[in-house]
Design a protein around this nucleic acid. Structure first.
Length: 279
DNA sequence: GCCCAGGGAATCG
DNA sequence: CGATTCCATGGG
């Protein structure tokens, strides 16, 4: 990868496996949206970025600098990882079957973002029995309600800010039966009975177990938090879409435990493949 | 009005 | 244990 710095943006070139469209539209994050000019804009760590795909292997990122990129975006975009290598590993783990080959081909360019753990936790609690447009609306409403306002928009709220908001206000915001779940998650993180940053250092199964101590967090939400917020690439969230994939393409059964250290990425390929291939 | 949405808890049998 | 039912809300 090469990086060039301009006045208000940078350009990354010689990239491999980097699709702006797929990264932000594969259902892993909820604060990024395509804009009419063909880019994708959204807020990370309270700062609004805009991404444009200039060619297959080059991307521009607006409202950043080389220093900011190194401090924040490099890790966020998991540019330290070799996705070509991971793709080969995944294909091998699946025995090189047709489904995974097609899914990788369709999803090539997806990267697993390293998002803020607390934001991921609350977002995926909101996601349960909900659809993506409404999840985005609720997340944005929460940011407006108690996030920190700056020139770029609203940052995602701190745990304390959500605790201060209270469960009644969360209900008023139409989060429905999820209100007490959101409140419990914020409380546990604010009190320190759940240490999200600490979970990053634990093995995946222990982290999943700890996350499920939060009300309204089951295995699926915990897996998404681990995968997108704790950098646990060896988690394989099973949702309705993945269930469909497994029944359809692997009726004999697929042992998820044999899918290797990057099985979370394979999950994203399969999700994207099934969800978007006919759209 | 009915169905579903990147689920999970409560309550059965 | 596994299977059902309920949970709020909004859009198709």
């Amino acid at each position: 990868m090469k990086i060039k710095e301009y006045k208000n943006h940078i350009e990354l070139s010689e990239l491999s496996c980097f699709s702006v469209e797929k990264i932000f539209d594969c259902g892993q994050c909820f604060r990024f949206d395509p804009d009419p000019e063909g880019g994708v804009s959204g807020i990370y760590r309270g700062r609004k970025y805009r991404f444009t795909q200039e060619s297959e292997d080059s991307v521009r990122i607006y409202n950043t600098s080389k220093a900011d990129f190194n401090d924040n975006l490099f890790s966020f975009l998991s540019l330290d990882l070799d996705y070509d290598m991971m793709n080969i590993d995944i294909e091998g783990r699946f025995g090189g079957d047709v489904t995974i080959k097609e899914a990788i081909e369709a999803g090539k360019g997806i990267r697993i973002l390293r998002q803020d753990a607390f934001e991921t936790l609350i977002s995926f609690i909101i996601s349960q029995n909900n659809n993506i447009p409404r999840i985005k609306k609720l997340v944005e409403a929460l940011c407006r309600e108690c996030g920190e306002k700056n020139g770029d928009g609203y940052s995602f709220p701190t745990p304390e800010a959500i605790v201060d908001l209270g469960v009644d206000k969360l209900r008023e915001m139409k989060t429905g039966f999820r209100a007490p779940y959101i409140y419990d998650a914020a409380t546990k993180v604010a009190e320190g009975s759940i240490d999200l940053e600490g979970l990053k250092n634990l093995d995946t199964d222990t982290a999943l177990c700890e996350l499920q101590k939060i009300k309204g967090v089951g295995l699926k939400v915990a897996s998404c938090v681990a995968l997108f917020g704790l950098n646990k690439l060896d988690t394989f969230p099973v949702d309705v879409w993945i269930k469909r994939v497994l029944e359809k393409y692997y009726p004999e059964g697929l042992d998820i435990n044999t899918l290797g250290n990057y099985r979370g990425l394979s999950q994203q390929y399969l999700f994207y493949y099934e969800r978007y291939k006919n759209v």
